Computed example of a mutant assay.
Amino acid sequence: MGKAALGLLALLGWSSQVPLASAAAPTDYSVMIISRERLEVATSCEIGIYLNDQLTGRLFQEESTSFNLPPGDVDVRLRLLPGQAPGCNNGIENQKAQRFTLKAGQVIKYRIAMSETGLYLKQAALGY
């Protein structure tokens, strides 16, 4: 009985040395919706959405898309993509990106608009 008790104490002591395995808490994502539903951009060209300088989406008129993104900063750049419609050829355009800081669990909607300096995102109401 003494050996069994001693073995049990040794086992309990050893188990306190081993780190407990635990699953990491899931990261809450934010949702960024980008819409071209309104006719604010007077072109039939396809618009490319670049997140952190990578083409991640394409929008035609009256379309929208959404992205599940981790919290933090994201750079968004919009540009007209070359296509078969007249006037959609590559040219010199503004390469300026907009920086957004996203929070975990946030759902935010933007619509594409155009100014003298090019395409940009304008915050919009979620509408639901």
Results as ranks from 00 to 15, higher is better:
1 M>T: 13
6 L>S: 14
6 L>Y: 09
7 G>N: 11
8 L>T: 02
8 L>C: 12
9 L>M: 08
9 L>K: 01
10 A>L: 15
11 L>I: 10
11 L>A: 15
11 L>C: 11
12 L>K: 12
12 L>Y: 09
15 S>C: 11
16 S>M: 12
16 S>N: 05
17 Q>Y: 10
17 Q>R: 14
18 V>A: 04
18 V>I: 15
21 A>D: 04
22 S>I: 13
26 P>S: 07
27 T>P: 02
27 T>I: 15
28 D>E: 15
28 D>L: 15
28 D>V: 13
29 Y>I: 09
29 Y>Q: 14
29 Y>G: 01
30 S>G: 15
30 S>V: 07
31 V>K: 15
31 V>H: 12
31 V>I: 14
32 M>G: 02
33 I>T: 08
34 I>W: 05
35 S>H: 03
36 R>L: 06
37 E>L: 13
38 R>P: 04
39 L>V: 11
41 V>M: 10
43 T>F: 01
44 S>C: 03
44 S>F: 10
45 C>F: 04
48 G>C: 00
49 I>T: 02
50 Y>N: 09
51 L>P: 06
51 L>Y: 06
52 N>D: 15
52 N>G: 11
52 N>Y: 11
53 D>L: 02
55 L>H: 08
57 G>W: 03
57 G>C: 07
60 F>M: 02
60 F>Q: 11
60 F>L: 12
63 E>S: 08
64 S>T: 10
64 S>G: 04
64 S>E: 14
64 S>Y: 06
65 T>E: 12
68 N>M: 09
68 N>R: 10
68 N>S: 13
68 N>K: 09
69 L>M: 03
69 L>N: 02
69 L>W: 07
70 P>R: 12
70 P>G: 06
71 P>F: 00
71 P>Q: 03
73 D>T: 08
73 D>G: 06
74 V>I: 15
75 D>S: 13
76 V>Y: 00
76 V>S: 08
77 R>I: 09
79 R>S: 01
79 R>E: 12
81 L>I: 07
82 P>Y: 03
83 G>A: 02
85 A>Q: 09
85 A>G: 04
85 A>V: 02
85 A>S: 06
87 G>T: 01
88 C>H: 01
89 N>V: 04
89 N>R: 09
93 E>D: 12
93 E>R: 08
94 N>K: 11
95 Q>K: 12
95 Q>L: 10
96 K>M: 10
96 K>R: 13
96 K>Q: 14
97 A>Y: 08
97 A>G: 11
98 Q>M: 14
98 Q>P: 05
100 F>N: 00
101 T>G: 01
102 L>I: 12
103 K>L: 13
104 A>Y: 09
105 G>T: 00
110 Y>E: 00
110 Y>I: 08
111 R>F: 12
112 I>R: 02
112 I>W: 02
113 A>G: 04
113 A>K: 09
113 A>D: 07
114 M>F: 11
118 G>K: 06
122 K>H: 01
123 Q>S: 06
124 A>I: 04
126 L>M: 15
127 G>E: 13
127 G>Y: 05
127 G>T: 08
